[in-house]
């Protein structure tokens, strides 16, 4: 598994390649925690190059979701291949997380929320 990290404004995008299993999910969890501990609260996970995920990977995202929710943060997913999406759906995660077709769409959703807050603030 390989993780590429980039910034899009105040959103952190993680592109994950390869397998997310019980062994590699430790690295993923460590990476996510390290970024969250630096104060980042908005994440998009791009799964385009992810070819496998097990319950160990789902647990990492659930843990991150819990921590982010407590701090008014959010994690969104994009570019999910069908087999990965199937595992998310079997676990009922498609009801908990926002899953977008593209990374651009997920980022736009974050920016629309931000714009909405600004409009409310200055209305």
């Amino acid at each position: 598994m390989d993780i590429q990290t980039k910034k899009a404004g105040d959103v952190i995008v993680l592109e994950i390649s390869g397998r997310i299993d019980a062994f590699t999910s430790e690295k993923l969890e460590s990476e996510l925690h390290s970024i969250m501990n630096a104060g980042k609260l908005k994440f998009v996970i791009n799964f385009e190059k992810t070819n496998y995920i097990s319950s160990s990977g789902l647990r990492v995202f659930l843990g991150a979701h819990k921590k982010l929710s407590e701090n008014k943060g959010q994690i969104k997913f994009s570019n999910m291949p069908d087999p990965v999406l199937k595992v998310f759906a079997l676990a009922g995660f498609d009801k908990i997380f926002e899953i977008h077709s593209t990374e651009k769409e997920a980022l736009e959703e974050f920016h629309e929320i931000e714009e909405g807050f600004k409009k409310q603030r200055y209305a």
Binding site: L62, G63, H65, A91, G92
Partner: peptide, 14 residues
């Protein structure tokens, strides 16, 4: 699986 709460999903047996 689908009916479990987040807390329950995190437990073993998942």
């Amino acid at each position: 699986l689908k009916d479990l709460s987040i807390e329950e999903k995190l437990k073993n047996g998942f």
